[in-house]
Amino acid sequence: MGATMIIVIDAINKHLFGDVLDEMFQLRARVFSDRLGWDVSIENGREIDQFDHLDPLYLVGLDDEGNVVSCVRALQTTGPHMLSDVFSSILDGEPPLRSSRIWESTRFCVDTARLQRDGASATAISRATCELMVATLETCRDAGITDIITVIDPVMNRVLKRSDNAPYDYVGSVKPMGKVSALAALLDCSDERIARVRAFAGLHDNVIATEAEVLALRAARRAAEAGDGWMDGQQATSLPGYAVAASVRPTIGLRALAG
């Protein structure tokens, strides 16, 4: 079993995972604004930028309770993307790479605070990080992508290096971005690199979950939240439709007691 279940979300299946994406935008706000101090705009506790409106591809990691704990975003370099439009200063005024075989990845993050609160060890956090890296590399490889250009900060750069996933090169130079600095790194999506990261984290199974698996996990979580202490012993997964009714029931019980 992996530490996380990773779902690939794009324009075609996003209607099934609206709540997952909403939680993801909240995670990004906590990580990039609150924790890392990046110069990003937050609205209503969510970090959403212009590129989120272009139907990018997301990979989102969920813990075994169904909480969103990691994410990353990918865009084609042939169309509008961050390095061409907002991070161009990193490239020292040079035009960006443009290729059907290169995707840009941005907003890679893992909710280390949540995982720690859940009692996860440093190994488990590293494992969750590597699972997202492997899922990203494999998704790109399967789409015919040879290389990823990724906009990261020096902290992420160290994490990549520590996970036997060091960039093979950098483009442009390190530039200040708010309280931190940003740089553009190159990663190949080769089987060799994927094998290295998998070996480092001891990942042998599939890291990408099916839509059905993730929908069941989320339904179980909703049922568990709604029915806390009420549905004693019942299989939460079999009761997604009861979520609303279950949230009403305890109130009635309390009223009856007070009356």
Partner: peptide, 17 residues
Amino acid sequence: GISHRTVEVHLRSAREK
């Protein structure tokens, strides 16, 4: 003084441009 792969990736991009 760059990696072989960096040359490849820039050539790929140049071809498409």
